[in-house]
Design a protein around this nucleic acid. Structure first.
Ligand SMILES: [Mn+2]
Ligand SMILES: [Mn+2]
Ligand SMILES: [Zn+2]
Ligand SMILES: [Zn+2]
Lengths: 151, 151
DNA sequence: CAATAATTTGATAATGATTCTCATTATACG
DNA sequence: CGTATAATGAGAATCATTATCAAATTATTG
């Protein structure tokens, strides 16, 4: 946590920007929340600490946090963009149920390795990737089967 | 092309919907265009054929086309959602240059295989996936190196 | 074919997320 | 302090997408 605050401040300095009270409140709140968070959800959480923080500031700050390498976009399927922080949170990808929205996080070393190979094959300098598998989770499958047999 | 029109009509029938003039014009135009297309771009193309087609109809129809399994969302990074048709277009994923926006299409059998294994591992019924690698393409890397050494 | 029911269309308004504008406030630094 | 610079928050603006609804199309039936 301290580590992240320091890293954020360092990043801001390299860009001639300042670590301010609202920025610190937003970052602390963000780091305390696990899971995927939209800007709006982050605004609500942040306002529990300081109710006069503005929406625009949250949008501006979450961008800065991502640029500083402390967060990344999680999913962007529809509706609001969501972010997840990277503190004590190793890299992973997402498996999502299209029926109930449940998200499972996983990491597959073989896939990661192949991805690196593809960057190399096309001469790209790697920056990142996003992979999301979509399907129907076991619970929802059961519910679907039950519904079908009832009819 | 004929094949796709027939498949679309069949899909519409299963839902009690009708194959109409605007829907056919939109689908034909979509199939004639290679690459990734936003609803707005598709509207512009379609209006070259029939200028009085409405924007709402294009949004509605591209949804139906995707539901019918004739198209999928391509990328949705920012700005407008884009679609690509699946006719004579085998499955692939995307490698995108963050500097110039260039997109390379590729398919890696090993990754596809591991993805199937992950669906199985968590008991999910697979529906699809989206994977996008982001990096800097060779041209843009050269340009960046050149700029740096000039300073 | 006429009559009727159902679906589709396009213009327009509404929505929701994000970004912009700008007057006011906070911060850094000599 | 005093001055310069950056940041803030309220509200307006923007952009993609969806909803609304009266008019037009299409299918179905007698
Ligand atoms: Mn996650
Ligand atoms: Mn493609
Ligand atoms: Zn589920
Ligand atoms: Zn490039």
């Amino acid at each position: 946590m301290h580590d992240e605050l320091a890293r954020f401040e360092a990043y801001l300095r390299t860009r001639g920007l300042r670590m301010t009270r609202p920025r610190e409140t937003i970052l602390r709140t963000f780091l305390e929340t696990e899971g995927h968070l939209s800007a709006d959800a982050l605004l609500r959480e942040t306002r529990k600490v300081d109710p006069r923080i503005g929406q625009a500031t949250v949008f501006r700050t979450i961008h800065l946090i991502a640029e500083a390498g402390l967060a990344r976009e999680a999913c962007n399927d529809e509706g609001a963009r969501t972010y997840e922080h990277l503190a004590g949170h190793p890299h992973h990808d997402h498996l999502r149920c299209s029926q109930c929205g449940r998200i499972i996080e996983f990491c597959d070393p073989e896939i990661e390795q192949r991805q690196a190979a593809i960057f190399a094959q096309f001469g790209f300098e790697p920056q990142g990737h996003m992979m999301e598998l979509t399907g129907v989770c076991p619970e929802c499958r059961r519910a679907m089967v039950a519904r079908r047999s009832r009819q």
